[in-house]
Design a binder for these strands. Structure first.
Lengths: 202, 202
DNA sequence: ATTATCTATAGATCTATAGATAATGC
DNA sequence: ATTATCTATAGATCTATAGATAATGC
């Protein structure tokens, strides 16, 4: 029998972490449907039935992988969130470089978001909401910069927020597809600089 | 027995087209791995064995779907290619609106490119090369605009090309995920205008 | 005569369950 | 005494093949 039960032992916690790590790598490389439980279990060093003890269904595993990734992305965003207005946008110029530091997490995000574009599921809602929150963060920074007089009064925060999100996302895809030949770090820095130059008050 | 043979009858050609259409819709919605041959066959109004007569393997079907999509995208790009330099870039401002006209083809592209990010396959190579060609088209236009004195001499064509491609791609994803709330057409127009404003000669 | 489609089915996965066994903590 | 893992297997897909039958073109 199984059932995650109340208390977990150190050994179990380590296994859980190893499974999550293996699952993240394989989901990132082959997608959710492309990576089988057996392949993930093998990568983590146990049998598929052993894996199922820790995560009752494949979907539970996916949700746990997403949750772990979300927590890490939140952490990566902390230095951005710590700032306001123009300073926040300037810090975001470095976010391309931040993403280059973790290719697996970046590929996971691209793959899973594309795989859950339309279906009505928990994963789809997660991505929809995450994009909404990210755009709201940027739109708020543009508004603050405008209110502070650091950027032009006639800028459109919603459009600027969506476009800045888009560049980061699109660079991610090209960076992955070109195997690093297209620079996320460089592209993002150039974009943010350009936005600030264009929107600087006359 | 089967085998595509030399001559195809009108009935067969119509069926082929119906299968390609159904496959495009289902691949776009559920991805290559997510859409089964049986589901595609049902959508096209025949059995899976009937489908296999027209496309011997699922991968053959995928390649045919991609080829058909590529041809349509080439057609959509014709008005862009017909121009040079700054005029080409200005025409590209309307490309977001062009993509909004075909949500299925747009979703197909996002889904399949993400699904074939890393694996070494014909589909992966197709996307890698298509992005290279698209960036080369834009980089060439930036160079021409610079040479003609329409844009600043110190612009970086490679970075501008990658970033413009990125915005289009990223907007595509947000447009799909937000169910149209984020406007591809508006975002792309704003971006191109902004680039031209920023890079206009002093 | 050839092209198109169907029924039936083989063979390969894949997720998940049941129940036994091994390892760990108290 | 509880937690973790294994073997064995059920049941559901899924791709693809073989061979029969139906529809079409000459």
């Amino acid at each position: 029998m199984n059932a995650p039960a109340g208390t977990r032992q150190p050994r179990g916690l380590a296994r859980r972490a190893a499974i999550l790590d293996a699952a993240r790598r394989l989901f990132a490389r082959q997608g959710f449907k492309g990576a089988s439980l057996a392949a993930i279990a093998q990568e983590a060093g146990l049998t598929d039935a052993g894996l199922i003890y820790h995560f009752p269904t494949k979907n539970d595993l996916l949700l746990a992988v997403i949750e772990a990734g979300d927590a890490e992305q939140d952490q990566a965003l902390a230095p951005v969130r710590a700032r306001r207005g123009l300073a926040l946008l300037r810090r975001l110029a470095e976010f391309g470089a931040d993403l280059e530091a973790d290719p697996v997490l970046t590929a996971l995000d691209v793959t899973l978001s594309a795989e859950h574009l339309q279906e009505d599921s928990k994963v789809n809602r997660y991505f929809v909401q995450r994009y909404e929150r990210f755009r709201a963060l940027l739109a708020g920074a543009f508004e603050e910069a405008r209110a502070a007089g650091d950027l032009r009064a006639d800028l459109d925060p919603a459009v600027e927020a969506a476009n800045m999100t888009a560049v980061l996302d699109g660079l991610r895809l090209q960076w992955l597809l070109s195997d690093g030949a297209v620079s996320m770090a460089g592209g993002m820095r150039a974009y943010v600089e350009g936005v600030i130059a264009r929107l600087s008050p006359p």
